[in-house]
Design a protein around this nucleic acid. Structure first.
Length: 546
RNA sequence: GCGCCUGUAGCUCAAUUGGAUAGAGCACUUGCCUACGGAGCAAGUUGUUGUUGGUUCGAUUCCAACCAGGCGCACCA
């Protein structure tokens, strides 16, 4: 829910600060925190602790003086009616306790506007390009790509929800070495089908799918020099289908081949050369990335005249800016982390701030089955694919599980757990809460109108806990944004589910008292809206029955 | 050798980015179904936060060194 009360309090505190400590040289930001678990108020600030050093008073004294001034300002501020109490507690924290009316007002907003009430214009329509997966079209997507897909897609959804204009992009490596090798792999398999057995090099694509492509190429009489493109085209269709079944849809498919043809790479080189960031040495052309903090300079054109991977990538990222995006977010696998500095260097060489590109390293997932690691061998072209995980546990569990840990952390994914329909499986726990609410709403008398509910009847602890939990939703989204990681949302949804189950267990929703029933139904519906919204942002379905 | 990531309860992980008593789930034990979905709820046990220092009102968080594990260090993509 929009936390404009936080902004209101911030300005109240600023007012009090100005009055009391105009000499505070560094502008102290109020820095309000919304505790998610603890019982120290609904909002809290450590301002006094940071301020007391300068004014030779104890932290608690400082906090008391400050709290008094804040109280005075609050009485004049419209936000004041939502604050029940301002308390100095602990070492000198100032804690704000909201009145119940605040939570009732928030729930009312949620019921009348639906999930619109949860949206924000935080991003001011800033155009953001999120590039992820971008796997070479040489084989099926692996679980590593799957995790990137889950993270990238949800991140884009969350950013759009917060008012950004985030678009999803897949960069297609449809030319170069790997496509040549792909073509040769198919060619060898075609000859094998003709009965000519030759040695199959280790660095060629080993998977059985190459045979299928070879058969098709034979049937269609594809020319030898076109085999690479032909195979890549077929594989790309497979990848697109895999992503679609995973619930991920890209706004743009950007082709490296098209980039090369457009002459944009030479254009970029020309620019860098004019700036003096390119030089020749040992027959190769180097990019002076050390100028921008890289460990060493990088080759862009090899001595044999061909380009390194960096060359098109430099031009490609400039194109992203030229297309109008002011913030680029790239999701890469951990094997690419050494590549961050040189790409950032190129972005800076073109005069963009280094903050205008964010690179997120998505750590690998280890697949388990009933506690045992599922071994894979990339050598034989055998790796766990997105398709296998999808077939085994389904889209919802797969997406939720890939997001359940911090993106920068390794993830253990147990297929058996993801399939279980018990409390052990977090996705079922959350979806169950949603389904349960739907069931209650189905059994409720038809005449219930949420707008007429008297919410002030919600006074029990479990009810207030649930109301508070609902309000935290927007705070959680802000954490997701500042960390560029949807993972916190999975944690929150589990907590919200738990808070609801607790409430449900202690208090009967549909009861004798008609007014109380209405109020509790309203609370249940509010919970359902937030659960549904959160699940949707994660790309997980919101079942009404299970 | 250099760089990045990780090290927290028996296991998998948190700790809202420097805050208050380090918390959840799983596992284990024990309770709770004549009413809205028991796929649920409640109660109990578990800690030298890898080690040692430093920074300060305050450190799991920041800094340094060390220990252990993973990954990366191409004129590959």
């Amino acid at each position: 829910m929009k936390n404009n009360i936080q902004d209101a309090l911030n300005s109240v505190i600023k007012g009090a600060l100005k009055e009391l400590f105009p000499q505070a040289d560094a502008p102290l930001e109020p820095n309000l925190d919304l505790p998610t678990g603890s019982s120290f108020g609904d909002l809290t600030t450590n301002l006094a602790l940071r301020l007391c050093k300068g004014i030779k008073k104890s932290p608690r004294e400082t906090a008391t003086i400050l709290a008094e001034a804040i109280n005075k300002h609050l009485q004049k501020d419209p936000a004041g009616k939502f604050i029940k109490e301002v308390k100095v507690e602990g070492a000198g924290f100032i804690n704000f306790y909201f009145s119940e009316n605040f939570f009732y007002a928030k729930l009312e907003e949620l019921l009348s506007e639906g999930k619109q009430a949860l949206k924000e214009d935080f991003g001011a329509k800033q155009p953001v390009l999120i590039e992820f997966v971008s796997a070479n079209p040489t084989g099926s997507l692996s679980v590593a790509h799957a995790r990137q897909a889950a993270v990238g897609d949800s991140l884009a959804s969350i950013m759009n929800f917060l008012g950004f204009r985030a678009e999803r992009e897949y960069y297609l490596n449809d030319e170069g070495n790997q496509i040549n090798i792909l073509g040769k792999s198919v060619e060898l398999r075609m000859r094998e089908l003709d009965g000519i057995k030759e040695e199959f090099p280790e660095n060629y694509y080993q998977g059985d799918y190459i045979y299928d492509i070879a058969k098709e190429a034979k049937a269609k009489k594809i020319k030898q020099e076109e085999l690479g493109d032909f195979a890549a085209g077929i594989i790309l269709d497979v990848i697109k289908k895999e992503l679609a079944d995973f619930g991920v849809e890209f706004d743009h498919w950007s082709s490296q081949k098209a980039l090369t043809k457009s002459g944009k790479i030479e254009e970029a080189f020309k620019f860098l050369k004019a700036k003096g960031y390119l030089y020749e040495q040992d027959g190769a052309t180097w990019f002076k990335s050390t100028e921008f903090g890289d460990d060493k300079d990088r080759v862009v054109v090899k001595s044999d005249g061909s380009q390194t991977y960096l060359a098109p990538d430099i031009a490609y990222h400039q194109e992203k800016f030229k297309r109008g995006f002011s913030w680029l977010i790239n999701l890469w696998g951990p094997d690419h982390h050494g590549y961050i500095n040189r790409l950032k260097a190129s972005v800076e060489a073109f005069g963009h701030k280094s903050e205008s590109i964010s690179i997120i390293i998505v750590q690998l997932a280890t697949i388990f089955r009933a506690g045992q690691v599922v071994q894979m061998s990339t050598r034989k072209g055998q790796y766990i694919t997105l398709r296998e995980v999808l077939d085994e546990v389904g889209k919802d569990a797969a997406r939720f599980f890939f997001l359940m840990r911090r993106t920068s952390s390794h993830l253990d994914f147990d297929l058996e757990v993801a399939k279980k329909e018990t409390a052990e499986n977090p996705i079922f726990y959350v979806q169950y809460a949603h389904a349960r609410i739907c069931s209650i709403l189905r059994s409720s008398p038809a005449a219930v109108k949420f707008s007429q509910a008297n919410l002030s009847l919600l006074k029990e602890k479990a009810e207030l806990d649930l109301l508070k939990k609902l309000v935290q939703f927007s705070y959680i989204l802000h954490i997701c944004l500042s960390t560029l990681d949807p993972y916190m949302l999975t944690v929150y949804l589990q907590e919200l589910g738990q808070t609801f189950h607790k409430f449900y267990d202690q208090h009967r929703v549909l009861g004798e008292d008609r007014e109380l029933t209405q109020a509790r139904l309203a609370l249940a519906e509010g919970t359902r809206i937030v659960l549904a919204c959160g699940l949707e942002l994660l790309g997980v379905s919101q079942p009404e029955k299970m």
